[in-house]
Amino acid sequence: MEKIIKLENILWKRDGEEILKDISWEVNRGENWAILGLNGSGKTSLLNIITGYNYPTAGSATVLGTEFGKASLPEMRKKIGFVSNALGRFQQTMNRETVENIILSGKFASFGIYQEITPEDAERAASILKDLRLEYISEKRYAVLSQGEQRRVLLGRALMNEPELLILDEPCAGLDVLAREDVLSMTESVARDTLPLLYVTHHIEEITDAISHVLLIRDGEIISQGPKQEVLTTENLSTVYKIPVRMHWEAERPWMSVERPNKESR
């Protein structure tokens, strides 16, 4: 079975503090993973290892066949599509661009078009606009779009370069219910198109049917990993979220509620 990601005994320190501790994890082709944990649990640090922006303090990492320390990490990054709120630092530049140009810019990992666009590039962008239901706003500037539309545009940009791995880092953060479900619908369609997906969140209700596996992380350590039906238990989620919770399945999606103490028992 082809391995998309293989991390072995990863340790990562920042300013002498252990942020990631003994992380061992494999992602195989055909698996789509959700990564769950509280803010500050190590999710972003783990993504930075996977994308090669942080180098492990100890342990070994191989992503998309690239073994860290033995091959070019910048070349590896070109194979990864990435959507994150961290892209907000390019907001001013994106606000001046049309939807079509932002999607095209994904071919060059830039914001703005600084190289020649081929007919093949234009054709692929048009296909993405159609698949993500963005044709009606293709000539609009990014600045006038709703948050939900902006997330779908960034998803289209991530797909432009035909990545071998797609990482979505809290793509529904800040969205209302309608916009969230729209983004999740688009994400599910992409995940079913044989493209390996890592979906990072702390909201378990965003785990759609297309997600097959879950990694739970707390304070830089893996609490549980594997098929989602085995990992998403009341006990595991209570451990990860540091508060008693109850989870259940509805319409093939997991849902969670916080357990409140019985007033009579106080």
Rank of each mutant, 00 (worst) to 15 (best):
77 R>T: 06
222 I>P: 02
186 M>V: 15
169 D>Q: 13
87 L>Y: 04
92 Q>V: 09
149 E>M: 10
56 P>G: 00
99 V>K: 04
37 G>M: 09
109 A>V: 01
85 N>G: 14
213 H>C: 12
153 V>A: 06
206 E>G: 06
170 E>L: 10
128 I>D: 07
68 F>L: 04
233 T>F: 08
21 K>Q: 03
161 N>I: 01
141 R>M: 13
75 E>R: 13
257 S>Q: 12
80 I>L: 04
45 S>P: 05
193 D>C: 02
141 R>T: 14
198 L>D: 03
86 A>N: 11
157 R>M: 02
102 I>R: 04
154 L>G: 10
98 T>M: 02
246 R>H: 15
4 I>C: 05
105 S>K: 02
4 I>D: 05
38 L>V: 05
218 R>N: 14
76 M>Y: 08
16 G>K: 14
177 V>W: 10
198 L>H: 02
75 E>Q: 14
248 H>E: 15
79 K>F: 02
86 A>P: 00
208 T>A: 15
28 N>T: 07
228 K>S: 11
47 L>I: 13
128 I>H: 04
188 E>P: 02
11 L>T: 10
80 I>N: 06
255 W>L: 12
18 E>A: 10
160 M>L: 12
185 S>N: 15
202 H>K: 04
199 Y>K: 08
104 L>G: 07
192 R>T: 00
238 S>D: 12
113 I>Y: 10
82 F>V: 06
232 L>S: 11
118 T>V: 07
170 E>H: 11
71 A>W: 07
163 P>R: 09
98 T>F: 03
147 Q>C: 00
173 A>P: 01
45 S>W: 09
223 I>A: 06
180 R>W: 03
166 L>Q: 05
172 C>P: 01
208 T>D: 15
145 L>N: 07
100 E>R: 15
74 P>F: 02
232 L>D: 04
32 N>F: 01
69 G>L: 01
106 G>R: 02
61 A>I: 12
78 K>Q: 15
173 A>H: 09
120 E>M: 01
123 E>W: 00
8 E>C: 06
149 E>V: 00
60 S>E: 15
202 H>T: 02
129 L>Q: 09
100 E>W: 14
155 L>G: 08
266 R>H: 06
249 W>K: 10
36 L>T: 07
126 A>H: 12
241 Y>G: 09
199 Y>V: 09
254 P>W: 04
66 T>A: 05
38 L>G: 06
84 S>Q: 03
128 I>Y: 03
258 V>A: 11
256 M>R: 08
32 N>D: 03
51 T>N: 04
65 G>T: 00
39 N>Y: 11
78 K>P: 11
42 G>S: 06
92 Q>G: 08
7 L>M: 11
93 T>C: 01
228 K>M: 12
123 E>T: 00
